[in-house]
Design a protein around this nucleic acid. Structure first.
Length: 435
RNA sequence: GGCUAGUUACCCAAGCGGCCAAAGGGAUCUGACUGUAAAUCAGACUGCAUCGCAUUCGGGGGUUCGAAUCCCUCACUAGCCA
């Protein structure tokens, strides 16, 4: 288990100005649906309880969508409750029904590898010390020994097909041309089983998750009630959406991952910095531990002096620090200031420039490389044709100077003899090392 | 098992033998305007390339001078019947 120094968590606390934790969670917009509001308010305000949230290994890393869940978990822990971080070694082998299409199954080896990655990520956001230390669990531990007969006799009997079919995730698919396989149809049973197991083993009485998982959350609540006669609870967080209707958590069509190898701290910082004015206050509530007073102040700043982008800067700093730590965040800021600064890039000292370039996707080139090829190598464009088009549209800059000839060579402009900065559009950058 | 409808580019969706690299919408990207914001307007959006070429319309195989469009077959999906 990873152990963090206390300073790692020192900036994190709930806001004591709220009468109860529940009120704060509501104000932050972390609660979209729940089993029983009054009971939950009391439950969370009382003696420590054990709660869990599950993450399925459908990718090698968690992303910003999962980050909402991690924030809620951490807030509950800060209030004294005991978290169980579940990574779904078995549910990940099945896949929950997506509204659009049947999932492609991953091999058990791949899923097992991803389980390890996700566990490490979940662990970063929870404290494993003290009376309410977090624990990691894997549902493969209790699902894998079950035989098909045991599963059908002992668990299946508690599930009514009529109820299962009515769940949104299932009915959406049944009503689509896509249909649904028995495999994915069964998913809700597995997740229900998890809640029952954790209730029995750890007296876990609350499950949190995204509201799109609501059907799966209640599946567990119902199973515990039917099979054991006990009442347990669930909280569904809202789906985070952008005010303009675009999907939250994507940048240029790519998900923002929590793994720095997949999404650099620089890219994470840039993502948050570019938050719309209309959304920034909501984001501050959900994704930072700033107090209500601080957030109100930032909201005021958006209204009165939007051009300073104080709220966006604060949001980007806070979230990037949560995910990657303060050192990486400061480096990302320094890189951004160097690259987006008013000054001439050639005027930057070599050390600053080198570290700024380190923060960007980079390509290796020679002085004689065509700019179009380097654009492609750096991932700024998808093809040479697109590179030429971008140049033709006046959207490509080499060291902040517009490239107007699609036959231009990198070597025409090199910084400190070994670097160049390529930019596409206003803010998509790549570093080039001359080798 | 039978019958019917369907499978088109990132998503939705036209096309029903040549004028189809394939209408339209959305998403995305770029330009202008800005605050590394939004809204708006303009352009791009299979790849390579000097109005040309190559690869696409679920997979495979045919018919034809020529197919996304017709035929056969396989796979998958939905609905109805058994």
């Amino acid at each position: 288990m990873p152990v963090h120094s206390s300073e790692h968590f020192s900036r994190q606390s709930n806001d004591s100005s709220f009468p109860t934790l529940w009120d704060e969670l509501q104000w932050r917009g972390l609660i979209h649906v729940s089993t029983n509001e009054d009971e939950l308010r009391d439950l969370l305000a009382g003696e420590p309880i054990t709660y869990y949230c599950g993450f399925d290994p459908t990718a090698p890393s968690l992303h910003l969508g999962n980050f909402v869940q991690l924030m809620l978990m951490r807030r509950l822990q800060l209030a004294g409750h005991r978290p169980l971080g579940l990574v779904g070694g078995s549910t990940g082998l099945i896949g929950d029904p997506r509204p659009t299409a049947e999932r492609t199954l991953n091999t058990p080896e791949v899923v097992a590898e991803w389980v390890g990655y996700l566990q490490a990520q979940v662990a970063k956001f929870l404290s494993f010390e003290g009376d309410n230390a977090a624990r990691l669990v894997n549902n493969l531990d209790w699902t894998s020994p079950l035989s098909a007969i045991e599963f059908l006799r002992d668990i299946g009997k508690y599930f009514r097909v009529g109820t299962m079919i009515k769940k949104d995730a299932v009915s959406t698919r049944l009503n689509s041309d896509e249909g649904i396989s028995y495999t994915e149809f069964s998913y809700q049973i597995l997740q229900g089983l998890d809640f029952r197991q954790l209730f029995v083993d750890h007296n876990c009485v609350l499950q949190t998750g995204g509201s799109d998982q609501w059907g799966n959350l209640t599946s567990g609540v119902d199973l515990v009630k039917r099979s054991l006669g006990s009442t347990v609870h669930a909280i569904g967080t809202p789906l985070i959406t952008n005010s303009d209707g675009r999907k939250f958590g994507k940048s240029e069509g790519n998900a923002i991952w929590l793994d720095e190898k997949l999404t650099s701290p620089y890219a994470v910082y840039q993502f948050w910095l570019n938050t719309d004015d209309a959304d920034v206050v909501d984001r501050l509530k959900v994704f930072t531990f700033l107090t209500r007073a601080q957030i109100d102040e930032l909201g005021e700043a958006v209204a009165t002096e939007p051009f300073r982008r104080l709220a966006q800067r604060t949001l980007a700093f806070e979230v990037t620090t949560l995910i990657h730590g303060e050192a990486a965040t400061l480096a990302a800021i320094a890189a951004a200031e160097a690259l987006f600064g008013q000054g001439d890039l050639a005027a930057l000292d070599e050390v600053t420039l080198a570290s700024a370039i380190d923060a960007l996707p980079t390509a290796i080139a020679t002085a004689g490389s065509p700019v179009t090829q380097v654009l492609l190598d750096a991932g700024l464009v998808a093809s040479l044709g697109e590179a030429r088009r971008a140049i033709g549209q006046g959207g490509v800059y080499l060291n902040n100077v517009k490239v107007d000839d699609d036959a231009a060579l990198i070597g025409q402009s090199v910084l400190h003899g070994k670097f160049a900065v390529l930019r596409r559009g206003k803010k998509t950058l790549a570093g080039v090392r001359i080798g």
